[in-house]
Design a protein around this nucleic acid. Structure first.
Lengths: 204, 204
DNA sequence: TAAGTTTTTAACTAAAAAGTTAAATTTTAT
DNA sequence: ATAAAATTTAACTTTTTAGTTAAAAACTTA
């Protein structure tokens, strides 16, 4: 008896749904479009996932897990706090560069329905890891190796500097009146620019 | 002959539309909801604005004009660059605090339809003013009054630090597992925190 | 081959929403 | 008072979309 597990088809649907939902949002996405994007039909969509909402939540949960920064590796290494921050900035900007539509998608949908977040992050260990990271910061601040800041705000600052320009991309493009490629160059520079900026701010 | 200018009704419609569009987006907004929010009916909506798209664009243009930072006053004053930045940070965070849904609304809609921006900002003098601001920065950098950075990235950094935490509000709330009020306190602290952070980064 | 599973085809229903209209009523300005 | 303008009422059309279904075809595997 074949359990209904043709992962390749389920995967095709998930990929297509991801693409369409990220582009158009929950309201804007059309099941027919997802189906044709996956190279199948609506009936088969219904065969695998019973409803649009169902499909959306599967995608949404995956995306949240991807974008909430994973401090685990960073906290565990034995580098200085500056090296860790630099490492984080590089990794996170790389990640956002490769998934440029993710932040806007999540922010849009979470704002439209904040309830959705409530359940998801409750169990993860992200907050604990973040606190651990904050404690390391405080230690190095007290020793005088870096300037003293409120650690929560410092973490917020780091993430803001990494993510926001990618979120504001089309607005930036209009204000600066430049083409896609030119903006990409600017955004690519940010890895070094943000690292430098943070280094200077933290210099004791 | 009374010209069709009962501004009070037109204004009521615009206010209602602003509220609903900002909350639900173009796709999610319902004309019936806008009408009842304005205390009128759909027919009158049609009497003033011919279509949903028409109404939306009126709102959208207003919102864009509001959120793109106005450097005019700042550029013109005779303060030091640090004072100007501090002034800007305070004013912009105040503005975002008072209009917390604006950034998400604009980012969502611009991402969904980047064409919309193209026309709007073409004629404004924002870019010129921004360049003027950048030149002032460069001058003070060369004199050694502040640390040298790429001025475009510096402006991006300032705006990122001001806006992003407000955009990410519901995600933050979920990650930190705190209530609305507690997050508001944290966000309120940012005016001072961001000012301090920028001062430290720019210290020669 | 035979049974079970996956996929397509091709309809269809029900609901929601935008857009439209015409006629009646109310308000405003002259 | 009366003409013009604003507003309501209430119905209607059209379009779009999610959701559903049944039957046939194709594929998989024992």
């Amino acid at each position: 008896m074949a359990v209904p597990l043709d992962l390749s088809t389920e995967q095709k649907i998930l990929e297509a749904a991801k693409k369409v939902f990220i582009q158009k949002g929950l309201d804007g996405a059309r099941l027919d479009e997802i189906a044709s994007e996956a190279g199948i039909n609506k009936a088969l969509l219904h065969y695998y996932f019973r409803s649009k909402e169902n499909l959306f939540e599967t995608i949404f949960d995956q995306m949240i897990a991807k974008i909430v920064p994973d401090f685990t590796a960073i906290v565990e290494s034995s580098k200085t706090i500056e090296e860790k921050i630099e490492h984080f900035v590089h990794r996170y900007i790389d990640f956002v560069s490769e998934n440029p539509q993710l932040p806007v998608f999540l922010i849009t949908e979470v704002n439209r329905n904040p309830e959705r977040m409530k359940d998801i992050l409750g169990q993860t260990k992200n907050f604990a890891k973040m606190q651990q990271f904050a404690f390391q910061m405080i230690t190095e601040m007290q020793v005088g190796r870096i300037k003293s800041f409120n650690p929560l705000h410092l973490i917020l600052n780091i993430i803001s500097l990494c993510v926001f320009p990618f979120i504001a991309k089309p607005i930036l493009q209009a204000v600066l009146q430049i083409k896609d490629d030119d903006l990409s160059i600017i955004l690519h520079q940010r890895k070094e620019e943000v690292s430098l900026f943070l280094r200077e701010a933290l210099r004791p």
